[in-house]
Design a protein around this nucleic acid. Structure first.
Lengths: 136, 136
DNA sequence: AATAAATGTAATAATATTTGTTACATTTAA
DNA sequence: TTAAATGTAACAAATATTATTACATTTATT
């Protein structure tokens, strides 16, 4: 993960949480994050798929939070955007004659999974609510 | 981290640990990992800087482990190649008028650091030795 | 009905990161 | 002297990430 998707998602969710009862436009959200509105709309569609956000099309449309802040953990947000293991990728060395090269990826699979789990454990008990409260 | 550097480093170190008393060439190591020898030499220089590996130039040269396997933790290896936070990067939204946009990066800095620490904690008590022993 | 303002999304472009390759100077044992 | 190794710079190729353009569609308002 060396992209900005986690930062973008939590930013969007924080804005929605702090502006309940309003429909926030992707343009306005994009202005706060200082990124392109199309990126915001793409991420909003991810949030919609998970049922965290509801969006209204057309004039006076926009997005709003569709779930309580305490019901989204930071682990949930992380999982929504995670596209690699914490320890990175493996080399493709399964075909080598070397006994280490032949077996190492099986060992790394396990190590990588266990490390990812450590991150989930660190984030599962932290809620979007507690993150948003920092801005009061 | 969506690169293969951790996998490459631990592969190199595993080979060196299992072939003590020999000078392994970067070409031979590269064959086991199935990557380019120049990449191996670059990573070996990282390992040398940390004093984990000693290299002999010239004919009959190569690399060997210069430290006990139990004295290198997987956290050490991770830190040697880590180039981003577990949760990724931040957007550059410090200049926006929005109160969330203005302050969120300070909050994310802390969250990102704490998450990275959780990974270190998961890896600090695991040694290269215990990883290498899996291949016996 | 017309208009304005919003989302949805495909297609493409621009950047940045990561990995691979070539080339060659240097080192050292035989 | 030669062969075989490292060290490293420079460049190329491949991927991944982010930004942009364009436009169809939707919907409230007038």
């Amino acid at each position: 993960m060396s992209n900005t998707r986690f930062a973008t998602l939590i930013h969007i969710l924080t804005l929605l949480a702090r502006n309940k009862g309003q429909w926030l436009s992707s343009d306005w959200i994009a202005g706060s994050i200082d990124i392109n509105p199309v990126i915001v709309r793409k991420e909003l569609s991810v949030l919609q798929e998970r049922g965290w956000v509801i969006t209204k099309k057309g004039k006076e449309g926009g997005s709003a939070l569709n779930i309580s802040e305490e019901d989204i953990s930071l682990a949930d947000i992380y999982k929504a955007v995670k596209n690699s293991n914490v320890l990175g990728r493996k080399n493709q060395c399964g075909g080598t004659a070397c006994p280490v090269g032949k077996d190492i990826n099986a060992k790394l699979d396990r190590l990588f999974s266990e490390t990812d789990e450590a991150v989930y454990s660190a984030l599962i008990h932290r809620s979007l609510k507690s993150f948003v409260e920092q801005f009061d």
